[in-house]
Every structure is written in structure tokens, then in C-alpha cells.
Amino acid sequence: MFDFPEFFSFPLGDWINITVDWLTLEWAPFFDVITIAIREPLVSLEHFLWWLPWWAVIVILAAVAWRFAGRRIALFTVCGMLFIGVMGLWDETMTTLAIIVTSVAVSVLVGIPLGILAAKSDRVEAVARPFLDGMQTMPSFVYLIPAVFFFGLGKVPAVVATFIYAVPPCIRLTNLGIRQVSSEVVEAGKAFGSTGLQLLFKIQLPLARPTIMAGVNQTIMMALAMVVIASMIGASGLGLEVLRGIQRLDVGQGFLAGISIVIVAILIDRVSQALGRTRETGLRRGG
């Protein structure tokens, strides 16, 4: 009487399972290609970071921070990375960095072209908008499920899940940035006889750059958040340390790993924000 009538139940779950099974079987080559395309650069990057002497990593990161974000951030980088090393989390941090860099690279490589498409066509934008809205409201760990189904466990599905979770702002802000470019400047480009590509590369993208970089920055931040969660599907790195800390009730270990994530987050955030700011505004590096 009070239970929902049984005969209304709908085998939607079964259908989804059937579809997914079919996809994993029939589309296996497709997923294999993606797996290789993600795994190879990811593993190479990780090994490269491990191979580099610790001080070289610190020098490179600090130099990049100095160049784009100023002296204070450079100083912060040096102290933060030294702290991570002292806490014995160096290798995990390098793994996390590799996963983030790969996820963000995939997001940018896919997201910016999609954003451009959306900016050039109202129809594409109209189709993309509900998807993007939906993707951003969904809880992040939901993306772990399809990632695991199609790519198994490990770092590759972690990158895939991170990509799906983190790509919307990149698409959205690329679209917005291009649409916001002053119509008179676009008209000027056309009036002097630019082709579609010339217009894109000489006018729209350069002028949309601050907005696009804001999108990339958001993508990076979301990727960082996701990397922790993705440790649940077997991605190693700082996230896994946090997870272990929780599982073993080792608060200290979890806390240190958490601090390390925050350090990496601040570092990446400041540098990527500064990248979007420089040039146009005329205000050089606001520190």
C-alpha cells in the first residue's frame, strides 16, 4: 500500500548496463586509443619529474613563478616545495603534478576548440549550454563511474574523470571571451579582408585571452579538487595519501598530504592567473 507499486518499475538500470557492456565490447579499440593517448604522455611526464633532481624542479618552478607572478610567489614556491620534500611527500607530489598537468592539457586541447565552435555558431552554443550546466551541477564523484567502466582503474580513468569534471569552464569562458570581443574590432578585421582563421587567430583569440585564461584557471582548480577524489579509483599521488590517512585514521598523515595539495594549488593558481593578466592590461604583474 505504501510502497511504490512494483509493476511500475522500469528496467532502466539494466538497459544502461547493456548499453555500457555493448560499448565496452564494440568500442574497445576506441577506448584503447584514448588510453594510450593519455597514458603515454602521463607516464613519461611522471618519470621525467621523478628523474629530475629535486632542486632542479624547485628552481624551474620558482623561475616560472618569478617570471609570471612575481617575487613573492617565487619565494612561496621555494618554501612550499622544500616543506613538501621534508615531509617525505615529494614523489607523491610529482605524481599529482603529472596527473593535473595531463588532465588540464587534455581539457584545454578539447575545451578551447569546443568553446571556439560554440562562439562561432549560436546553434552549437544552444546545444552545449544544457550539457555544460548539467555537468557543473553533478557531484564530482559521479564522473568516476563511467571512467571506471570504460578505462578500468588507475591513473588513466582518473585523468578522464578529471577531464570531464574540469572541462566545462574552459568551454564556457572561451565561448564567452570570443563573443565579448568588441564588435567594432571584429568588424575592422573583416573590413580589411581577413579570412575566418585570420580573424580567429589575429583578433578573437588574442582579445579573448584574459577570459580564456580565467577559464583555464578554473579548470585547473577543479582538476586539483578532482585529483583527490580520483584517488578512490586508484590514482596514486597526494590524493591517495589523504585517502589513506582517512582509512587508517592517521590524521597527521592525511593532514600533511592535504597541506601539500594546498601548496600546489596556490602555486598553480597564482601562476595561471598571472598568465591571463599580463600584457593587455598594462598593469605589469600585480604581485
Binding site: S182, E184, V185, E187, A188, K190, A191, F192, G193, S194, T195, K202, I203, P206, L207, R209, R279, E280
Partner: peptide, 21 residues
């Protein structure tokens, strides 16, 4: 049309339409 715009017609705009970058 592109050739026409590149060689025969040019334009000056009210708010200049310059490339700030």
C-alpha cells in the same frame, strides 16, 4: 569579396577598432 576588401576598400571606425594587444 575578401580581395575587394583587402585592396580596394578600407575603413576607419568611430571607436577606432584597433587591436589593443
Amino acid at each position: 569579396l575578401r580581395q575587394l576588401r583587402r585592396h580596394k576598400l578600407s575603413m576607419v571606425f568611430q571607436n577606432f577598432g584597433l587591436l589593443p594587444h
